[in-house]
């Protein structure tokens, strides 16, 4: 589980630029030179509002977004423009959990087929696959007979557990978690977050944890970066970023999020109004 070179991070992104082509002439620059690192066994949060580019960064790591400039290296190897077989091989190391617990599982496949697919791709035997799938279901605390069922038979939280199990079956070293709890009820959200932490401790996997919610990030992330309009405006220890932010945008973000306590929220709102006036 140790990285070959202890000083080098597991994932390193340098000055990444992503352009989306809107029309033949118009480009939209979703990322404007973003740098970020994730160490082994670490959870790094990426916070921002819609359109900030946080999901684009996650997709760029997965090879799902067009990189115009900059570099991504994983475990010391450059993967910025990995294509074809090289990219497919990365599936061993980098996996993903998406937001939508309904769209992220093929409704026509049983849970067993969903979980076995990443294994079959690398040529695992049926027996091997079955054993791994059973183990992973156990890890995410789903009953073993789930393999014969279809995703539609599960609740949102359960589906997200299945999605996490799928991300884990190849025993990756990094999982990109793109808003993995934002579609869930609050109580479910809390248990899924606990599951993420528990799995990280058990397997040593790293997370790039993308979220719009500072509270969620504070719960699971060691370090956090804040994104705004395609740039990282603030990075640092999660505690600092979420409690005593330096950048005005992060401050605005923090003060805008209502806290579940009327007295504290009255203070926060007053501070938010003061900040809005001063702006």
């Amino acid at each position: 589980m140790t990285a070959p070179n202890n000083t080098a991070p597991l994932l390193e992104v340098r000055d990444l630029v992503v352009d989306y082509h809107i029309t033949r002439k118009v480009n939209f620059r979703a990322l404007k030179g973003v740098s970020i690192t994730v160490g082994a066994g670490e959870c790094v949060g990426l916070v921002g509002e819609s359109g900030s580019g946080k999901s684009t960064l996650g997709r760029a790591l997965l090879g799902l977004a067009p990189v115009a400039a900059g570099a991504i290296s994983f475990d010391g190897k450059d993967i910025t423009h990995a294509k074809g077989a090289a990219r497919r091989k990365l599936g061993n190391d980098i996996q993903v959990v998406f937001q939508d617990p309904y769209g992220s599982l093929d409704p026509t496949m049983t849970v067993g087929e969903v979980l076995a697919e990443p294994l079959e791709v690398v040529g695992a035997s049926k027996t091997q696959a079955r054993a791994t799938v059973a183990e992973m279901l156990d890890r995410v605390k789903l009953p073993g007979d789930a393999v014969h069922r279809y995703p539609s038979e599960f609740s949102g939280g359960q589906r997200q557990r299945i999605a996490i199990a799928r991300a884990l079956v190849r025993r990756p070293r990094l999982i990109v978690c793109d808003e993995p709890v934002s579609a869930l009820d609050l109580t479910t959200q809390a248990t899924i977050l606990d599951l993420f932490i528990e799995l990280q401790r058990e397997t040593g996997v790293s997370y790039l944890f993308i979220s719009h919610d500072l509270g969620v990030v504070r719960r699971v992330c060691h370090r956090t970066s804040v994104m705004y309009q395609g740039e990282i405006v603030e990075s640092g220890d999660t505690h600092t970023v979420t409690e005593e932010p330096n950048h005005p945008y992060t401050q605005r973000l923090l003060l805008a999020a209502p806290v579940a306590d009327p007295a504290k929220q009255a203070e926060r709102r007053a501070a938010w109004l003061a900040l809005r006036e001063s702006a």
């Binding site: 997965l62 799902l64 497919r88 980098i94 996996q95 939508d100 992220s104 697919e117 990443p118 999605a163």
Partner: peptide
């Protein structure tokens, strides 16, 4: 557009 297609691609499905 469904995320499960992206997930399959990430897993190295051709």
């Amino acid at each position: 557009k469904e995320p499960y297609i992206d997930a399959a691609r990430v897993s190295g499905v051709t």
